[in-house]
Simulated assay, not measured.
Amino acid sequence: MTRYLLVVPPFVGHINPLSAVAAELVERGHQVAWAGDPDMLARLLPEGSTVFPVWCPVPERPADVRGFAAWKFLWEHTLIPLAQAMLPGVLAAIEQWEPGALVVDQQALAGVLAAHRTGLPWATSATTSSEIADPLAAMPAVSRWVTGLLTELRLRFGDPMADHDLRFSPHLVLAFTTEALAGQAAVSAPVRFVGPSRRAATPVDFPWDRLDHRPLVFVSVGTLNADSGAGFLAGCVTALRERPDLQAVVVDPGGTLDAVPDHVLVRREVPQTDVLDRAAVVVCHAGHNTVCEALDRAVPLVVAPIRDDQPVIADQVVRAGAGVRLRFAHARAAQIGSAIDNVLSDDSYRTAAKRIQESFARAGGARAAAVSLEALG
């Protein structure tokens, strides 16, 4: 039996994939505790989970910040300050829990710094494959800038003698995708592709009786893009209004949509994985979890990335042949409708999605991740 401490940032998409891994570890006789934002973890984890509260301050990012400006804001104003703020709480959790190994989300760098200080083995949880694909390879100046930030962080709070990238454990990197989607890893780290970690749908009231036999289009731009996504969602509704032979579920967390047709069901929150089980096509912002959850069901996509890792994930979808890409800021109803028609009418997209689904099944998911962690601990 090994005690594991899972160190996570206050981001839903970085916690959900690990929750199934944690359940698998417990099922296999191990003990698991979490270090992170207590309110968010209480909302996302099963009742009775062991949680060590950690201060996780995150500034609000302007909705209109995109491209390199968004990347710069993420590193300078979120990830680096978050690492410094979380470190005391993570060290306290280690002292109390006495784990045999750490599992550290790629954006919870305090976990790596704590591993340096305590000498504990640690695995990286890469809930998105964008870093593994090394998106900065074509931008050496930006890559050097990020490396400089990480080096300064390590010299101040971690092991000055370490020579590895803080984003990648030299022991184990769990990648919640497969090479069929992400391509081969472009980093020098021991990457284990385990595929997506299936999770139960969030219990949410949903009018299932409103759905019928028509092909279902699922539309979501994520909960963090409520403001910036309003225009895109409106364009989706306009496109779907002209397609009564389809049915749609549109996630509108900001409540921006009104006067929608009867065959378009708009909800602030949905049991996403259950809805995806019935979907014929997904229109989304290319968030890694949504993309993988769709492809895990062999559902092709229309992707309109907004910022951060989303352009990288969108390129992976297109390169794999499992969907088409739109320009988020410029897509209008005509382009959105044409993309939906294209994906639904061309069987090659579903064939590619099916190929990726099969690769996910072979990868092993949460069980494969737990087995790899057992070798670490």
Rank of each mutant, 00 (worst) to 15 (best):
N225D: 13
D227W: 04
A230P: 00
G231K: 00
F232A: 03
F232D: 03
F232I: 02
L233W: 10
L233V: 09
A234K: 13
G235Y: 04
G235H: 12
V237F: 15
V237N: 14
T238F: 11
A239Q: 12
D245Q: 11
D245M: 01
L246S: 09
L246Y: 09
L246I: 09
A248N: 13
V249Q: 02
V250I: 09
D252Q: 06
P253M: 10
P253A: 10
T256K: 12
L257R: 12
D258I: 05
P261I: 13
P261M: 12
P261C: 11
D262K: 06
H263T: 05
H263Q: 05
H263L: 04
R267Y: 09
R267H: 12
R267A: 14
E269L: 15
E269K: 11
V270R: 04
P271G: 08
Q272T: 04
T273N: 10
T273G: 04
D277G: 07
R278N: 07
R278F: 08
R278V: 07
R278A: 13
A279S: 05
A279I: 01
A279L: 01
V281T: 08
V282H: 03
C284T: 08
A286H: 06
G287P: 02
T290A: 01
V291G: 01
V291W: 00
V291D: 01
V291T: 06
A294E: 01
A294V: 01
A294F: 00
L295P: 00
R297Y: 07
A298P: 03
V299T: 11
L301S: 13
V302F: 11
V303P: 03
A304Y: 15
A304E: 15
A304T: 14
P305Y: 10
P305K: 08
R307L: 13
R307I: 12
Q310I: 05
V312I: 09
V312C: 04
V312K: 00
I313N: 12
I313Y: 08
I313F: 07
A314V: 05
D315P: 02
Q316I: 03
Q316W: 04
V317S: 09
V318L: 09
V318C: 10
V318N: 03
R319S: 15
V324Y: 09
R325F: 05
L326T: 11
L326R: 08
R327H: 15
R327W: 14
F328N: 05
A329Q: 15
H330W: 15
A333Y: 03
A334Q: 15
A334M: 07
Q335H: 07
I336S: 05
G337Q: 10
G337F: 10
G337R: 09
A339E: 05
N342W: 06
V343Y: 04
S345P: 00
S345L: 14
S345W: 05
S345V: 08
D346N: 13
R350L: 01
T351A: 14
A352W: 12
A352L: 10
A353F: 01
K354R: 11
